[in-house]
Amino acid sequence: MRFAQALAYRLLLAVITLVLLSIIVFAGCQVLPGDVGRAILGPLADARAVAVLNHQLGVDQPLLLQYWHWVSGMVQGNMGMSYTYRAPVGPFIGHALVNSLKLAGVAFVFVVPLGILGGVVAALRLGTWIDRAIVLSGLSATVVPEFVSGIVLIMVFSIWLHVFPLTATAPNSAGGLTQLYYLLMPAIPLFMIIFGYIARMARAGMVEALASDYTRTAVLKGLTYRQVIWRHVLRNALLPTITVVAVQSGYLIGGLVVVETLFNYHGIGGLIFAAAKAKDFPMLAAGILVIGLTYIVANLVADMLYSALNPRISFGRRE
């Protein structure tokens, strides 16, 4: 009962966040560009043509009305018409989102377990060369930009060794395994960037839990090393890592412009980038809103998971 209440409360907060986000997005995409028709048609276009276009697009109406139309459309699943393609935005966004989720999923499946494993192993071998190797490689991988690692990967594995395809986009008829094969190489730069964060967080949590009094209690009970780690250390140690994973998932879904461009992949990052370049404001706004939504959902899930695993924080209690 309490859980349901708390969930309702958090969902309400999420909606409020979304509304605020929509206002910012609306302001950024529809209001700030000023004369939309002029922006699209360019400085040399005839003033009458601009006015006609503005009227067609509806941007000559009062702002509040424009916002209302936009938001009510969004709620009903009508994301507006793309300026560039003269077609509804929705299918574009949907398609791109599915693609992004696939790529993010592939990266996630590898980076979350391996990152945690790396952090745990480093903490268990604290101060040894294994620890240093994991921390150092995680740190160095994090600072390599995607366009550097991506280009190196393409050079080595596609052009030189011919192991992986140049593009991340599998042929239309491809099955699941083929798609996975196409996504493996683009997932590597993402893995490199995120691995360090997760490993460091897991390591810090482990170090703290290993030094704690309750771990000493467990050891002095006479439990085996394995039992101490599995029952008493891991669960307390990995709680903070959940939050990091949630934040990174937002990045993985919305922030992959470079990787998507490099590997010629049609994800939502690339879509937004293209929309911004082409001044396709409805597309841009819808894209940003969708990414915002994924962040909110990821954080909500992380909070729920955190409180489910940590009895000290009940999901319903607010301090």
């Binding site: 704690s212 000493r216 209690t217 029952r231 695993l309 000290r312």
Partner: peptide
């Protein structure tokens, strides 16, 4: 030991 609050595993 001194602080019983820390001697027990908080999540069990």
């Amino acid at each position: 030991y001194q602080d019983p609050g820390r001697a027990l595993n908080p999540s069990l």
